[in-house]
Write a protein that binds this DNA or RNA. Structure first.
Lengths: 241, 241
DNA sequence: CGAGGGTTTGAAGTGCATCAAATAGTGTGG
DNA sequence: CCACACTATTTGATGCACTTCAAACCCTCG
């Protein structure tokens, strides 16, 4: 019962479901469950038969692809509020990548079948789904561009900018939301490279690094340094948030 | 009139429109036009107001992003039959990248407004659109993985495999569909790197390179070499075709 | 034939990866 | 509250992959 309230609340707040009618949402919530995750717990593996999708309540979730020899390519790291696993309905009901909880947290597990039929029965919702896919597509395009054009330090700068509260003025404090090692993998680089690239960024833009906290005195300098190698308007919105 | 037939034919063959009813298709065709393109001709530029989308009749089209300083990141290179520019309806009716004809060819220019309203009025078509976006999303995920995990030679090998006619057995002949320089940019590498990486691939897998023609004697060897660094099943389908 | 673009080759530099080891930071049990 | 264990992070040394700049070569087409 309490769970159902939590689930209903989470659905109401999600971009995808916020405009759905209450009847559907409570039906969906009734067929869903809150699941507690531990650090490193696998939620599904690429190739698995897909019958559930997820919304993150708490903690971060890493999506990744893995080759035979164990090499990982991190596709994305998603914050609370995000949905994942939902695109498998377009992929023969198989998961196309693997998902792992980065840390202890909570996710809601929801039935894919209901999502599928709701898309089929409800054109307005289908359009929401389209919008959500379009948003993702744009992010991926941007990501690919960044990997092609930006160097390690610039990519880190870009992350910092997207983590920075745009409303703030003057001295800005940024908290890295998770391990530096994980940020590194999200950016497609090694931890050692991240460390060195961050200190290069420090020299170039006079940011102050104190562990996981980073203070930016002159935001424009950081923008100049990072965004000069990016075709998008500053800031590269929506990628990290 | 002849143009209308050509357009109707192209629509009927496209994955996205093939199941649409004839009334809509002829209406759409009536508001469309065949456009002849010259080598290097820009079809639209990132940020432009979007009111048309395109289907390629003949020739190749390059989608790319460009920074202030002119550095290009090639997003994709599309063959005849492909649709592009259509996702701008989800992006404030702005093009999010730029499109350029690689060579002399023909494209159909179609009105975005009609696509938009057809999606809104026709749930079945909306689902087709969803499927098409899902396909693209998968490709992009794969692309990002390749860039992260595969080296230059392996990425070239992957391209060759996708260009190879899977039906063929024994000695396989592959024709590069466009300039090596362009293939290189599509793979995010320099022409010089492409040249050297191809000759490395030649040494590793005993393929025979004669200009733009490549003969593969032992396909499995090429698969071993390239696909060992890829999480997808061989072959990485649909990316080039 | 000659001009011009595409392609290859050479030499040198840069950036990132890798391996190894030191250091900092965190949580645990005593 | 401290010491230990363990993990995250940094630093150093070295190697490899790709880029860059320069020049030669090759191919095509007017």
């Amino acid at each position: 019962m309490a769970d159902n309230d939590i689930i209903a609340g989470a659905l109401k707040q999600s971009v995808l479901f916020r405009n759905c009618d209450d009847a559907f949402l409570s039906d969906l919530a009734g067929n869903s469950a809150v699941k507690t995750t531990e650090k490193g717990q696998l939620l599904y593996v690429s190739g698995d038969d897909a019958d559930r999708f997820y919304i993150i309540l708490d903690g971060w979730v890493k999506l990744f692809r893995e080759t035979y020899d164990g090499t990982q390519a991190v596709v994305d790291i998603l914050p609370a509020g995000h949905i994942f696993g939902e695109t498998s309905i377009f992929e023969d009901d198989c998961y196309v990548n693997s998902a792992e909880a980065v840390e202890a947290g909570k996710v809601i597990s929801l039935p894919l079948a209901m999502l599928k039929s709701h898309i089929n029965d409800n054109p307005v919702f289908a359009r929401e789904m389209l919008k959500s896919m379009a948003r993702y597509r744009k992010q991926q395009d941007q990501e690919l561009e960044h990997r092609t054009i930006q160097n390690a330090s610039q990519r880190i700068g870009c992350v910092l900018l997207r983590l920075a509260d745009q409303a703030e003025t003057g001295e800005i404090k940024i908290q890295l939301p998770y391990d530096k090692t994980l940020v590194a993998s999200r950016l497609g680089m090694q931890p050692e490279t991240f460390s060195r690239a961050l200190s290069r960024l420090k020299n170039e833009t006079d940011i102050v690094v104190k562990g996981a906290t980073i203070e930016v005195d002159d935001l424009d300098r950081l923008v100049d340094y990072s965004c000069s190698a990016c075709s998008s308007e500053f800031p590269c919105k929506d990628i990290f948030k």
